[in-house]
Design a protein around this nucleic acid. Structure first.
Length: 816
DNA sequence: ATAGGGTTAG
């Protein structure tokens, strides 16, 4: 589906402000006002943004659509859409009335299960937003009948359970106005479906106001909701309150819920105290109690205690189940101990349990995180061969790994597979894809995923906003990113610092330090606490414009604010010092960093090596390279390029090539920059032949080179009087698909003219004209002068004709 | 009940 939609969807423009204004989404600001939230909870057809307009969905669903009858509008005419709808409506009436009739019969006979099934089916067919019309139907056709209260209540109940909370509320309020009382079960269901929102309190109070007595579930639902909203304090307070007022008898589920809530906010201690409280109440912990605590311990990194607890559980006669094993395997994964996981899997198999999709997902995620994507992919194949259907979480994990590895082809392949499965893709999936494409610079693809997400009306959250913002920044649309951010902020959503960081960095990257500082001021004004990342970006911004003093001041500022500088902070400043030529200051910072126990990483070491090379201290640079791998930081492409560049700059070819081979021995793929450096150093030291051979070898290997590699050789060949070879390399360059410009011809022609290879320079000129590029005045002057110097007056007059034709003014001849 | 996504430096 995903890929199909990519192709089939009419191409919208880049994310224009008009569209952007419609993809801000409701969830957080919806929490503030109940009416908005109810809109937000609805499926796509009834989602309207704050202004009540929804241009994007109109443009997709057609102007008339408040229900997604996509088929009806296939010819694009509004008229036919409404007619089609009216026709469908008409046909519905009878069946709806007769089905309600059956419900009344069943209600009278007390066959409530069958009655519920009919309502369930009706609501499934009608979809969300159907409550007003069903209520009207009931009012018009079944007023004053027996069992009405029951039918209405069941209708509210079924809506609530089908997660159509808005419709459930419509039915309940209609009931209220008709003096019918709803059951606690309907209120419980509604509360449960609103448990992620503030409205949970409103419903709870409504129950009290209606004078309906609580069920055994009511309090538990409220406590669970508060825990889900990370409001542990509030949950505990409510728990104590109703308990002391003796309105509530807690059960095992209550304690398990509170334990999970405690663990989720990182307090295993509090969870443990609930466990003992539970036992004081005379409850024995069940499987859920243990699993909750074991999970909490694993997430907190206390794997040993988690293992002890699971042994204790086993000793108490409770066999470990798949969930339990999964929790423990995940505990190993969280500590990066993938090599230990097979023991648990084996134990699991020996006790007759089979790993499930969750087990595999944990294992795949773990392997991918440790960089072993191959093993992850192997497991993917294994689960499929075992007959599992992967779900959206597993796919997200794998996609994320592939994106991080830059394996675009595999990504596309997998997206195609997923598209064919008609999975319901969720917000995490989309933000993974958007971020992934963004990082790879595939902005158009990122925007496509963005549009698809909006089209599917998947409600955006902070992660997805972040993905959109970084996408905009990366395309150079910082102004739009800022606009988007302000728009989010104005709609009342509390924005997290990461979103601000993204845009602040966007400003920095576009060279707009004032924009960056301006936004930083906004952050402070709003009372949002900046993070070290905020400062890192600002420091980088000032470094880029050469204001090192300000950058250093900022560095002190974050220490004052109690923020701990990271390797990025140090490395940014170190690199700035290095560029400013102050290698000693760079090394001093490096020492400070080590003294402050901030671990340098591969980027830091590369900067240090760059500085040392700049100082001519190549031996020490080599030692850094050796040391870093000794302490477990493995050198990457750029680290090797740095040292190779160091040696190239002092023309030490042997050493440069030594590290090139070393790089390949480490299974690192040299980058185009590596080859530029090597070819350049060969050319600069007169080894044109070797440069040519290297080029040939690389091309034979299928290596992708930059234009620089070709043009460096061409220039030297021309300068050394090898025009024929130069022409051949030039042809290869064109054949490789590079776009050639006038400069690419000027280089060789200048050099050939200088050495009086006028005939050969004419070949380059012809190739250039053939490519549709006209010479400029400077090039004509160079050539005319060369022809004049060599007495080639025929060519001179031909050149004159060309000058006229190109509309260039007269040439000044220094020789005349 | 258990599994997935974000910002910064060479």
């Amino acid at each position: 589906m995903l890929l199909n939609l990519y192709r089939a969807r009419p191409k919208l423009h880049l994310l224009t402000p008009r569209i952007l204004s419609h993809i801000h989404l409701l969830p957080s600001h919806a929490l503030k006002s109940s009416s908005c939230l109810l809109e937000a909870e609805l499926p796509i057809d009834h989602c309207v943004d704050a202004t009540g307009q929804d241009a994007l969905s109109r443009s997709i669903l057609g102007e008339a659509g408040n229900r997604p009858f996509l088929v009806c509008q296939s010819d694009g005419k509004e008229g036919s859409f409404s007619e089609g709808l009216a026709g469908l409506r008409h046909g519905f009436e009878d069946s709806r009335v007769s089905r309600f009739e059956r419900c009344y019969v069943l209600a009278r006979k007390g066959r409530l299960k069958e009655m519920r099934a009919i309502l369930r089916q009706m609501i499934d067919e009608e979809g969300s937003g159907s409550a007003p019309s069903l209520c009207e139907l009931l009012l018009n056709n079944f007023q004053d009948r027996d069992s009405s209260n029951l039918i209405w209540d069941m209708l509210a109940n079924v809506y609530a359970r089908s997660e159509m909370v808005h419709d459930a509320v419509v039915v309940l309020s209609k009931m209220d106005s008709l003096n019918m009382q709803a059951s606690i079960s309907s209120y419980d269901s509604l509360m449960y479906n609103l448990r992620h929102t503030n409205l949970i309190w409103d419903i709870y109070e409504e129950i009290g106001a209606q004078g309906i007595s609580h069920s055994e579930y009511t309090h538990n639902i409220l406590i669970d909701g508060l825990c889900k909203q990370w409001k542990l304090q509030e949950a505990i307070y409510f728990f104590q309150e109703v308990r002391t007022r003796q309105e509530f008898n807690p059960c095992i589920v209550t304690f398990n819920t509170l334990m999970r809530g405690s663990c989720n906010v990182g307090s295993v201690m509090i969870a443990k105290s609930f466990l003992s409280m539970m036992m004081k109440y005379g409850f024995l912990p069940d499987r859920y109690s243990y699993n909750t605590l074991i999970h909490g311990l694993c997430v907190a990194g206390s794997l040993e205690e988690a293992l002890e607890l699971s042994e204790y559980m086993e000793k108490n006669g409770m066999l470990l189940d798949v969930v339990n094993y999964n929790i423990l395997i995940n505990g190993f994964r969280l500590l990066g101990l993938m090599s230990e996981t097979w023991k648990l899997v084996r134990k699991m198999l020996l006790s007759g349990l089979k790993p499930d999709l969750v087990t595999y997902t944990i294992l795949i995620a773990g392997h991918c995180e440790r960089g072993n994507v191959e093993e992850g992919m192997r497991m993917q194949k294994e689960i499929i061969s075992r007959g599992f259907q992967l779900n959206v979480i597993t796919y997200s994990v794998i996609l994320n790994a592939l994106f991080k590895r830059g394996q675009v082809w595999e990504v596309e392949q997998l997206l195609g597979e997923i598209g064919a499965l008609c999975l319901d893709l969720d917000i995490v999936f989309y933000s993974t894809v958007i971020h992934g494409y963004c990082k790879l610079g595939e902005i158009e693809k990122a925007l496509q995923a963005c549009r698809l997400m909006c089209y599917k009306r998947v409600i955006c959250n902070s992660f997805a906003h972040g993905a959109i913002l970084s996408c905009l920044c990366k395309t150079g649309m910082v102004v739009e990113a800022r606009w988007y951010l302000d728009h989010l902020s104005n709609s009342g959503q509390p924005l997290d610092i990461i979103l601000y960081n993204t845009v602040i960095d966007g400003y920095v990257k576009s060279g707009d330090i004032r924009g960056a500082v301006g936004l930083y001021d906004q952050v402070i004004k709003k009372g949002i606490t900046p993070t070290i990342v905020t400062y890192n970006s600002l420091i980088n911004g000032f470094c880029r414009i050469g204001q090192l003093q300000v950058a250093e001041d900022l560095f002190r500022t974050c220490e004052h604010h109690g923020l701990v500088p990271t390797a990025v902070t140090y490395t940014t400043l170190m690199d700035a010092f290095c560029r400013a030529g102050n290698v000693d200051a760079m090394l001093k910072l490096f020492d400070d960093m080590v003294c402050n126990a901030i671990m340098p990483n591969v980027v830091t070491y590369s900067v240090v090596m760059k500085g040392l090379c700049k100082q001519g201290n190549l031996e020490r640079a080599i030692r850094i390279l050796q040391n870093m791998s000794a302490i477990g930081v493995s050198a990457d492409q750029i680290a090797y390029n740095t040292i190779i560049q160091g040696f190239c700059e002092v023309r030490k070819k042997r050493k440069a090539f030594y590290f090139y081979h070393e790089m390949r021995r480490q299974n690192l793929i040299p980058s185009p920059v590596t080859y530029n450096l090597l070819i350049n150093v060969l050319c600069m030291t007169g080894e044109v032949g070797n440069a040519e051979r290297l080029l040939e070898d690389l091309l034979d290997e299928g290596v992708w080179l930059r234009k620089f590699a070709y043009s460096t050789i061409i220039k030297v060949q021309c300068a050394k009087g090898m025009p024929c070879k130069a022409i051949r390399v030039f042809e290869r360059m064109v054949k490789a698909g590079f776009v050639v410009s006038i400069e690419d011809y000027c280089g060789p022609i200048n050099r050939l003219c200088k050495r009086d290879y006028t005939n050969e320079s004419k070949i380059f000129l012809n190739m250039m004209l053939h490519a549709g590029i006209l010479p400029d005045q400077e090039l004509c002057a160079v050539m005319c002068n060369a022809f004049y110097k060599n007495g080639d007056f025929g060519s001179m007059s031909a050149m004159q004709a060309l000058i006229m034709k190109c509309g260039l003014s007269d040439i000044i001849y220094p020789f005349l």
